[in-house]
Computed example of a mutant assay.
Amino acid sequence: MTQQITHEAVIDEHQIGMRFDQVLAELFPDYSRSRLKEWILAGQVSIDGAVVTKPREKVLPGMHIKLDATVEAEERFEAQHIELDIVYEDDDIMVINKPAGLVVHPGAGKPDGTLLNALLHHHPQAAGLARAGIVHRLDKETTGLMVVAKSITAQTHLVSALQARNITREYEAIVNGVMTAGGLVDEKIGRHPTKRTHMAVVHSGKPAVTHYRVAERFRLHSRLRLRLESGRTHQIRVHMAHIRHPLVGDLQYGGRPRPPQGASDELLSALRDFKRQALHAVKLELHHPITGELMSWQAPVPSDMVNIAELLRKDAQEVKHDFNPKA
Rank of each mutant, 00 (worst) to 15 (best):
A154F: 00
L102K: 03
P106D: 00
H211R: 10
E57L: 09
L162P: 02
S269G: 00
V71D: 15
E318Y: 01
A73W: 10
T153A: 15
E13C: 04
K54R: 14
V87L: 09
M1Q: 11
M146Y: 07
P246L: 08
G254D: 05
R196C: 05
D186V: 08
H136C: 01
L184E: 14
K37F: 06
T180H: 15
S303E: 13
A316Q: 12
V135W: 07
K150I: 08
V87K: 03
M146N: 12
H203Q: 02
E26C: 14
A299T: 05
V175R: 08
L102N: 03
M305F: 09
T142R: 08
E266Q: 14
Q22N: 15
Q3L: 15
L27V: 00
I65Q: 05
M18I: 02
S269A: 03
F323V: 11
V10R: 07
H242N: 10
W297K: 01
R223E: 13
F218W: 11
Y88T: 06
I40K: 00
A181D: 11
I96L: 09
G249F: 08
A173M: 05
H245I: 05
G249D: 12
D85A: 13
S151H: 06
M179S: 10
I174L: 11
M240W: 07
L41N: 04
R169I: 01
L129D: 09
P124F: 01
E83W: 03
K150T: 13
E72G: 14
F77M: 14
L271N: 08
V59Q: 07
L228W: 09
W297G: 01
I308L: 15
G144A: 11
V319Y: 07
H198Y: 14
V23W: 13
S264C: 04
V148D: 04
Y212L: 11
R313G: 08
A161F: 03
H14L: 09
N324S: 02
L120K: 06
V201I: 15
P61I: 12
N97W: 03
N176L: 15
A130P: 11
A127V: 10
D30E: 14
I65M: 06
E266S: 10
L24W: 08
G262K: 07
T142K: 07
R19N: 09
H287K: 12
P257I: 07
S34W: 01
L247R: 13
E141G: 10
E83Y: 06
G101R: 04
K275H: 02
I11M: 02
D21V: 05
R76V: 06
D21Y: 05
T291S: 15
T180N: 14
G205T: 01
S34P: 02
L311R: 11
L286C: 00
G43Q: 06
A173F: 05
E318K: 00
V238F: 03
N307M: 09
E83R: 12
V71G: 11
V214W: 08
P246N: 10
V306F: 07
D85C: 07
S46Y: 11
E57M: 15
